[in-house]
Design a protein around this nucleic acid. Structure first.
Lengths: 207, 207
DNA sequence: CCTACTTAGTTAGGACAACTACCTTTGTAG
DNA sequence: CTACAAAGGTAGTTGTCCTAACTAAGTAGG
């Protein structure tokens, strides 16, 4: 076999490209898992995603506009989805007196039930992660958080609620220690949140 | 602020859940980036993915059935996509004499051109990865490869071509060293491929 | 060599995804 | 009090992706 067979552009690639390729593969796995889970509950992928989000987030985030930003979709798309979920008796709308244009989306009992079940759609991913060394887990999480921070900076991901982009977060010199000024306590790598309910975006999110 | 505010189910989660959440976030970024890139070239996401795949893979993989498995879609969906790409003069079909049911899909000049450009759609991911320490990069790649291997084992991802699931791959004791029996040379972590053209799936893919 | 099975790909029809453009109502600010 | 912004909804379109049914071509058994 000629060595040139191994010289195709895609093959002698650097490690960064391989990491991107791996992430892309895992991204596809999410798509597949979400699709299967949706079908199992006679829902659509976006409906499942919305239900799960509603289960874990507080009132002020459970609005059409917030969901649209969260999922990088237009309000029209979310509005449609909500209408369907309401028809299926999985959510209810609560209009607030001080602003009747908007409403809070609540899960019904049935909605909570299904949200809880479907939120396990990523279970196939857990096994390999559980088996990593604790030290590797921390490294993996930190690397991923950094990637997300950059994606947020370049406006690919519009909303997130990670410690490392929060006003209350304080990295010490050399970025070796993490600290939360709201909880007033140090954070270990394993404590760094991906989705903190108290997140306040830093105005100047540099580095 | 009551401590119980921080006690919501989603919050005091373990590090494994945070890793899953991060990966999910990055998966969404891929979706967004692919969508934007597609729109920029007046193509659809799946058309772009197919073009990029065709650019980097050899003839025997450039068939409708293979693409369907690769992207976890039905042949019908791929067939449709190919028809559209042919109408846009981005691909041509080559029927082989020994089996006229099937054909090899070739990129036209124009197709290669667009595939090359759109394949950069992940560029926003490169910056944060480039900035990691070399040692962290290796750890990250190894962790991701392991996750993919498990996803393959549990049939979430049907096709892949990684060293660590290949007949020619030989891990030494304790999994500390990697070796390719085809190239007959040791592999460093950075050499481990995600998509090797010579990949032969191990019959017994255990561990 | 002929029938039966399998494989490669296509077609048709339908539910869902997600957009743009436009609209209504309500809140807010000069 | 008028003008603008913000929240959400409607209509119509294009694309995604499936299932089911189909054609044509290869393969294997008797």
């Amino acid at each position: 076999m000629a060595p040139s067979d191994f010289e195709l552009a895609h093959q002698n690639q650097n490690i960064e490209s391989k990491i991107v390729a791996s992430l892309e593969r895992i991204a596809q796995a999410f798509r597949v898992l979400l699709w299967e889970e949706s079908k199992a509950f006679s829902l659509t992928p976006i409906q499942v995603q919305v239900l799960i989000f509603l289960l874990y987030h507080s009132s002020e985030k459970r609005k059409v506009s917030y969901l649209a930003d969260e999922f990088n979709m237009t309000k029209a798309t979310i509005s449609d989805t909500i209408k369907t979920l309401e028809q299926k008796d999985l959510i209810t709308k609560e209009y607030e007196p001080h602003d009747t244009r908007s409403y809070i989306i609540h899960l019904t009992k049935k909605g909570k039930d299904i949200a809880g079940k479907t939120s396990l759609f990523t279970k196939e991913l857990r096994a390999p992660i559980d088996q990593l060394h604790p030290h590797d887990k921390e490294g993996l999480l930190l690397s991923l958080l950094n990637i997300i921070r950059h994606l947020n900076r370049s406006d690919v991901i519009t909303i997130q609620r990670m410690c490392i982009t929060c006003t209350y977060y304080q990295p010490s010199a050399k970025g070796q220690k993490h600290f939360c000024k709201l909880l007033n306590q140090p954070l270990y790598a394993k404590d760094l949140r991906v989705d903190c309910p108290e997140h306040k975006m830093k105005a100047d999110m540099q580095l």
